[in-house]
Amino acid sequence: MLNKLPNGVRYSSHKEWQLLKKLPKWWLLGTLVFASPIAYTWWQQEDLLTQNIERTSMFLGLLFTFWFFIGALMIGLVVIIIMKGPGYVADPYYLPKEDKSLENKDNSV
């Protein structure tokens, strides 16, 4: 199904695997940092919507931005890993024989 190129060059991996393995730890640590003020406010007051809504919104925005950054970083690292892998041969696509009678027809409809 997938045919590798006979003389394809496979590049050695450098930092991408190391960074990819550290991402879950970074995600957990960052989530704890940005969610702890929200959890503390909820623990003390038990109502996030009436007290400190600006602060809660700010930390939720920081949390979601951090999650987006980690997700984008993960996608980028996976793309780098795939691009450094072996090359594959695509299936040939043979063009149909050209119909010379269609070349001179007016195609305006």
Rank of each mutant, 00 (worst) to 15 (best):
F66P: 04
L95K: 12
F66W: 03
D99T: 10
Y94C: 02
E98N: 10
L19I: 14
I70W: 05
L19N: 05
W27I: 09
Y11D: 07
I53F: 12
E103F: 15
I38C: 05
K84L: 08
K15V: 04
Y94T: 15
K15P: 02
F66I: 06
W43C: 03
P86W: 03
P86A: 14
K100I: 13
L48I: 07
H14T: 15
P24Y: 07
L95V: 04
V89P: 01
P6I: 09
P96N: 12
D47S: 06
V9S: 13
P96V: 15
L29K: 00
G76T: 06
T50N: 12
M58V: 06
Q45G: 02
S101F: 02
D47G: 09
Q44Y: 01
K84S: 02
K4Y: 14
D99K: 05
V33W: 04
P37I: 00
P96F: 02
A39Q: 04
A35D: 06
G87E: 10
I70G: 05
E16F: 00
I53R: 03
N52Q: 13
V33A: 08
K84C: 04
P24T: 06
K4S: 02
D106K: 00
L73H: 05
V9K: 13
I81E: 00
L77M: 00
R10S: 06
K22L: 15
W43F: 13
K22C: 11
I82K: 15
W43N: 06
M1K: 12
M58L: 13
V33R: 06
D91P: 08
L32A: 07
L19Y: 11
Y11C: 04
D99A: 09
K97E: 14
Q44T: 08
R55D: 09
W26Q: 07
M58S: 10
P24F: 02
W43Q: 03
L29D: 12
G30W: 12
V79T: 08
N7W: 00
K21Y: 06
L2A: 11
T65G: 11
W43S: 08
A72L: 11
M74I: 07
N107R: 09
K15N: 08
